[in-house]
Write a protein that binds this DNA or RNA. Sequence first.
DNA 1: CACAGAATAT
DNA 2: TATATTCTGT
Length: 298
Amino acid sequence: MKEDESNWFSKWEEELPSPEELMPLSQTLITPDLAIAFDIRSPNGPQQPTHHQAPPPLIAAAQTPNSQPSSAEFDSSELGCGGGAGSDEPARTLKRPRLVWTPQLHKRFVDAVAHLGIKNAVPKTIMQLMSVDGLTRENVASHLQKYRLYLKRMQGLSGGPGGGGGSSGDAATDHLFASSPVPAHFLHSVRPNSNHFLPFVPVAALQQQHHQQMAVAAAAGHPQLQSQYRHVGHFGSPPNGQYEHSFMARQAQQQQPQQVHRMGTPVPNAVPSYVEDLESATTASGRKVLTLFPTGDD
DNA sequence: CACAGAATAT
DNA sequence: TATATTCTGT
């Protein structure tokens, strides 16, 4: 009998970190090297190996499966502003590629909103809590707008997503949101008295000009990008078997430009740089209970 | 002014 | 359609 095999396999599988766990909270930790690594899209791609200063890394672009092998090439379409004394760094005013809201990113978004409570969930705060490098307030605002519509739509229905038949368009749009369970309180209203403020992570996520979108992509769990990173072949995990852990991000960089004027909101105060993982409240039961957010495993 | 939120544009 | 950008009120 090969019990051993199945045995260690099971264990092994259990120990396997889920994709989110692997690289979840430290998106800002992406090193420039990694960013560069990303730049090399293909072995035969005529990409410049050493130009890591371009803020417009456009990572999350069309990611459709049937992309053509030729791939789109982005030559720096700089204006031919030859004469001009270097007025402004091109890097600053460039438009970034569209952010792609992957389920992972959305998950973080929902978690953040859940923790803040619908009332306090405003773009800026959400953005800060998410701690995703490269994420802008506008990104979140836009997504939040749509998310609210989604919630509204759902409130009208009876209970579950995918439920009520309606326009197929609606259902189709929901499927990203469906990825992440919507905290119950979202649907009706948060209790005014129920203020349970968690000790957030005081991380101040700042957007750097360097690897912005790159980080987002990684955080989002881009298949292409991540696959390059994950040397750890963690495959056995089924799409559903994901545990949740803490999600706070820790910031290695020392930035704390925030903390400006008065903050009426009970949001995290930028204090220290490191924070204990406020998770793993392993109860006596030995059961991993995520005390943080509503674990939204499907 | 900075920000949130809706409206609009791509 | 999804996300960005613009517009407006606070």
